[in-house]
Design a binder for these strands. Structure first.
Length: 495
RNA sequence: GGUCCUGUGGCCGAGUGGCUAGGCAGAGCUCUGCAAAAGCUUCCACAGCGGUUCGAAUCCGCUCGGGACCUCCA
């Protein structure tokens, strides 16, 4: 069964066929680093991280390009339109690149917490001003861009005469042209549907570059077209991003690229859905964002506790990427508990010893496990259905726990099945889903815990429950849970 | 107003027309020095009204509700 993915361009699931196998080029719209990343931002990067991981698992050589938008459409908050403050204030003012650097670093840090793989190329908009200007010049030469007062606009009406503007987002150009909304700067445009390729910089803009049309900054859509073309070519396999970018951002990217490269830029467009909070999209404009740093610290009125980045990753993967995901502290607590149980079972599985038998005593169970595992790939091949993979994994969890506790005989399943389960769990949980333990391993701590477990065991054997309970109780106060296992051993988990 | 998506049990969510995903929470039981964990069992669904069909959560229509985009947005 081949990999199928939902292509926003055709609005259906299609069999994935790379343009030049085994290579796959994928471009994902990265963050605008004018502020701190919030929970909503976590979704696309985790979603497409799994896409990269799965494509790699299938044997493809992926070039993953994810940009950093560090130029153009943002202003420093609260800055006066004019430099009234004396020139000596240079150092007191926030330097634009300082701001951008700060939030880029923070973003990278958060992505590390989520255990996402680094993109192969992470180009910045500011680093590609030349490429963007070149592209705009091409568009002007082709007759699809026009200059007004130092700004350059893309002529959508003209483009739509020969191309399908709206093919990705389902817009009808005539409707766009008749839109009744009146927005700032519309007077410069020939038509309301036109979008900026280059904007002349008003004084309050803290980032500005020289261009053939005067000082300004690039329009929002051109950077992705320019950088995707540069690193992936005129035509590449997958373009990803949030659903909210479908229009106008991605639609406009397509238009720009068509004019410059005369070809449909991406073969497959993938869009992840939004994270909502009380049913509403989490976003700047709704004033309902929870920053990632707040998620990790629990320092937010809507959070009842701090959340481990892995809990968030797991929470996101429990839903299909094209569905909205409604956030609540309660839902995250549930995810945390689920992941904990899942991971403990995985740790147990790794230590399970095979009964060294070829023929399982319980062939029904053996078959069931193999069937559940067979489905992992099927589910992933069906548009990356991580939710169903996790559901199957959870169906195997009780079997693992029962094997450990002797509730299911060791010889119930064959050695081959046990080994396969171990291998596939590692591949899926760690390599594909990119999950990690909620608690970190620490050699010293492990040693100390082993010692404490020994002392507790001794105390128990002497029925010195005062001592044994004291150890367990005081560890609990430190956030470490100690548990007696059925086989007499003692396990523990921090977290 | 236009375009599109969506409505599943206490909560989060998966669902290809027939075989009632899964997680968390609740209840009962087993295990246990106690505790926790674990295991087993169990309760609680498919917004409403019609239609198609032998059969619909799944297809169609209408009604009601929610949301996204059309403006910066992951």
């Amino acid at each position: 069964m081949p990999l199928k993915l939902y292509n926003s361009l055709t609005r259906q699931k299609e069999i994935f066929k790379p343009i030049t196998p085994p290579h796959v080029g994928m471009y994902v719209c990265g963050p605008t680093v004018s502020g701190e990343s919030h929970l909503g931002h976590a979704r696309p990067y985790i979603t497409f991280d799994v896409v990269v991981r799965y494509l790699t698992y299938l044997g493809y050589k992926v070039r993953y390009v994810r940009n950093i938008t560090d130029a153009g459409h943002f202003e420093e908050e609260g800055r006066e339109a004019e430099d009234k403050i004396s020139k000596k204030a240079q150092l007191e003012k926030v330097e634009p690149m300082e701001l951008v650097q700060k939030y880029t670093n923070l973003f990278h840090w958060a992505m590390k917490q989520f255990n996402t793989l680094d993109p192969n190329i992470e180009p910045t908009a500011t680093g590609h001003i030349v490429e963007q200007i070149n592209m705009i010049e091409k568009i002007i030469e082709a007759g699809y861009g026009y200059v007004v007062n130092g700004s350059v606009y893309f002529d959508v009406k003209k483009y739509a005469a020969t191309h399908n503007y709206g093919e990705l987002s389902g817009r009808i150009v005539d409707d766009l042209l008749e839109t009744t909304r009146s927005l700032e700067g519309q007077d410069e445009k020939r038509n309301k549907a036109d979008f900026a390729l280059w904007k002349s910089a008003p004084p309050q803009h803290i980032m500005r570059w020289k261009s053939p049309w005067g000082e300004g900054f690039p329009g929002w859509h051109i950077e992705c077209s320019a950088m995707a073309t540069k690193y992936l070519g005129s035509r590449f396999d997958i373009h990803g991003g949030g659903m909210d970018l479908q229009f106008p951002h991605h639609e406009s990217e397509i238009a720009q690229s068509w004019i410059c490269n005369h070809v449909e830029p991406a073969k497959y467009w993938m869009h992840n859905n939004m994270i909502t909070i009380n049913g509403k999209k989490m976003g700047k404009s709704y004033n309902n964002v929870i920053k990632l740093t707040e998620m990790f610290s629990g320092n937010h009125p809507l959070l009842t506790q701090a959340f481990n980045p892995m809990t968030i990753r797991f929470f996101i993967l429990q839903t299909h990427y094209r569905s909205t995901l409604d956030f609540s502290s309660e839902a995250l607590v549930a995810a945390e508990k689920g992941l904990k149980r899942l991971w403990e079972a995985y740790e147990i599985l790794k230590k399970l010893k095979s009964a060294n038998i070829d023929l399982p005593a319980d062939s029904e169970l053996d078959n069931k496990i193999n069937k559940l595992i067979d489905e992992f790939d099927e589910f992933m091949n069906d548009d990356f259905n991580t939710a169903k993979v996790l559901a199957n994994i959870f169906e195997i969890v009780p079997v693992i726990n029962s094997l450990k506790d002797g509730l299911i005989r060791k010889d119930a399943i064959s050695s081959a099945t046990l080994h396969r389960t171990k291998d596939v769990f590692t591949i899926y949980l760690e390599n594909i889903l990119g999950l990690q333990s909620l608690s970190q391993n620490n050699e010293t701590l492990n040693g100390v815990m082993e010692l404490l477990a020994d002392i507790r065991k001794e105390a128990k054997s002497k029925r010195d429950f005062y001592t044994s309970d004291k150890i367990r109780k005081q560890l609990a106060e430190l956030g470490i849970e100690m548990k007696d296992e059925k086989d007499g051993s003692i396990s523990w988990s921090a977290g």
